[in-house]
């Protein structure tokens, strides 16, 4: 019975966990993080929530902690990027430098987000990239739903303010402006590779 429960959870949430980690670190590290997260989940099936949304938020809490621990371990043993240090000092895992950043940087919003504090970045990313609702944000961040809503509102406002400043001062044109076309990077436009 436990095995069936775990297999169903694995099929549902492995992409969620791998995606969460891969958005913030290198792919091979993300796979390590996912392995550790499901090791934890396997041992603690007794505390995994039954309903879908809470289960997703629960496992992202574990992923967040495992990733932050992984980054802290590397902080002790390696010379790391200053942003990563700042994020860890604030107690949150952050998006590391990796090739994916180059894609994000071509978008003004991606660049502006990097100028926010680590906590602002985290809540914005959890909402936009990982698709968490306010309850999920509250669970992952360890606060009340009201506090999560307030934090999100403030972070979003600060991002908008940076975007307004950036639109007046940036000398770098995003790709879409160069060729006069939309960037085409919107998630909804991405095409799956299924069937190839």
């Amino acid at each position: 019975m436990r095995e069936k429960q775990f297999e169903a959870m694995f099929a549902e949430l492995y992409p969620v966990v791998l995606g969460y980690a891969a958005r913030r670190t290198q792919w091979h590290v993300a796979e390590d993080v996912a392995s550790q997260v499901f090791l934890v989940a396997w041992h603690r099936l007794d505390v995994v929530p039954d309903d879908d949304e809470h289960r997703k938020a629960w496992i992202l809490v574990v992923a967040r902690n495992v990733l932050a621990n992984s980054q802290r371990a590397r902080l002790r043993s390696a010379r790391l990027d200053v942003r990563l240090r700042a994020g860890l000092a604030a107690g949150v895992p952050v998006v590391e430098l990796d090739p994916a950043d180059a894609v994000a940087e071509r978008l003004v919003a991606g660049t502006a987000m990097r100028r926010l504090g680590p906590r602002d970045q985290e809540i914005l990313q959890l909402a936009a990239w990982d698709g968490l609702d306010l309850d999920g944000l509250a669970t992952v961040l360890g606060c009340s739903t009201g506090a999560a809503a307030m934090r999100l509102h403030r972070a979003r406002t600060r991002l908008e303010r940076l975007l307004q400043v950036g639109s007046h001062s940036s000398t770098l044109r995003p790709v879409g402006e160069l060729d006069g076309a939309d960037d085409g990077g919107d998630d909804g436009d991405a095409t799956t590779d299924g069937g190839w």
Partner: peptide
Amino acid sequence: DDLDLTRRLLAGTNPVPAQALDGVAD
């Protein structure tokens, strides 16, 4: 609401869209 506004602001910045994860569990 703020969730929708945030997702609109950050549309296209997701370095690993959900579609890129299709089938990873298999």
